[in-house]
Design a binder for these strands. Structure first.
Length: 355
DNA sequence: AAATCGGGGCC
DNA sequence: GGCCCAGATTT
């Protein structure tokens, strides 16, 4: 039944595909960068990051040898930071084992860190014209709708079935175009929220959900668990023209990025002053800052904050705490967007305007 | 199988 | 406020 959609999709894609930076090339390194960046991330958000990343690290060897802070700085604001760490691990393996060239083999691609079913399929089909599917959220939605599939698209069993079904109809001539056509359709026509644009859909005749008037019932997807709430007190500790930063642990949320020193829970002025002294610093002045909220996928941070001026003669006890000039922070230290509401009080914009 | 891991745009 | 995004990895 899926074979009917192949030709219409290829024709539609050829006429309607968007012009995107990573579509100017079939170089595997470029396709790889774009596919990793596009994981759980919208096309519009990726564009400027992709161009900057390619300019900074044009070759596999450049990525393999890049210092971690610089790597994270290039990823700052994109989120899911393990993506870029895994990319570097993979790059090192590719340089050592594959002469710097991503293998033209679906199974071998999957052995590299950060490359799973979807990404291996995308690289193999787009860069190497290997006829394998690339099943992402767009594809699952489109297939669930045209076939009125009641299975939860988040389940691995559903993904495996869709992948197997698509495998049977992959066109050998240009599998990459077919995969991208399916995704492009999901992104611009068979859209998730609101109503899909069925009037311009090239495969509307093959769509069961549309025929049945049940397009709004698909895809079926389980509800996400409620977010956990965390309260934090953010400290903007300034020493003349410098600001205190703290390096986060190498595992867990926002691993390896720099943050403003902060405390669990909401703290009073006096508690903060005590804590700052415990850091080995001498507070001169303290001022409270407005509350702010930052929402992650599975956690919500409710934050309050203080600006604290300390003596310039001070030295923090904690090795992971350091005082950095604002300009240097902007240039060299990756700080997550979660802190942007407070960063502006020390004239940091966390790269919002100039990627 | 479920939890973890960012950030933003749209309804 | 909820949903979703060219998902992968860990638990």
């Amino acid at each position: 039944m899926l074979e009917k959609i192949v030709e219409p999709l290829l024709m539609w894609y050829d006429k309607n595909k968007r012009i995107l930076p990573w579509r100017e090339t079939f170089d595997a390194y470029d396709i790889w960068i774009s596919e990793i960046m596009l994981q759980q991330t919208r096309v519009e958000a990726v564009k400027p990051y992709f161009l900057r990343f390619k300019t900074a690290l044009p070759k596999m060897e450049d990525l393999a040898s890049c210092p971690e802070d610089r790597l994270l700085k290039l990823w700052e604001g994109l989120g899911y930071y393990n993506r870029v760490r895994n990319m570097q691990k993979a790059a090192i393996q590719v340089v050592e084992k594959y002469n710097g060239k991503l293998p033209a083999d679906y199974e071998l691609l999957k052995t590299l860190p950060g490359i799973g079913n979807y990404t291996a399929g995308a690289i193999a089909s787009i860069a190497y014209k290997i006829p394998v599917p690339a099943v992402d959220g767009n594809v699952l939605r489109v297939i669930a709708r045209i076939s009125e599939n009641d299975d939860d698209i988040m389940k691995q069993s559903m993904k495996n079935r869709v992948q197997a079904d698509l495998m049977k109809v992959m066109p050998k001539s240009d599998p990459g175009a077919f995969n991208q056509a399916l995704m492009e359709l999901g992104a611009v026509v068979c859209i998730p929220n609101g109503s899909p644009h069925c009037m311009v859909c090239p495969i509307a005749e093959s769509c069961k959900a549309r025929k049945g008037g049940r397009i709004d019932k698909y895809p079926v997807k389980g509800k996400a668990k409620a977010r956990r709430l965390e309260k934090h007190t953010i400290l903007l500790i300034q020493d003349g023209s410098r600001i205190a930063l703290h390096k986060r642990p190498s595992r867990g949320l926002l691993a390896g990025l720099y943050e403003f020193p902060n405390l669990d829970g909401y703290k009073s002025r006096d508690e903060v002053l005590e804590q700052v002294k415990d850091y080995g610093l001498s507070p001169l002045r303290i001022q409270s800052l407005p509350k702010a909220k930052h929402i992650f996928s599975h956690v919500e941070w409710d934050m309050m904050g203080y600006a604290v001026q300390v003596s310039e003669l001070d030295h923090p006890k904690d090795e992971k705490m350091l005082f950095v000039e604002t300009e240097q922070t902007e240039k060299n230290y990756p700080v997550p967007r979660a802190y942007s509401a407070y960063a502006r009080y020390v004239n940091l914009n966390l790269g919002r305007d100039k990627i």
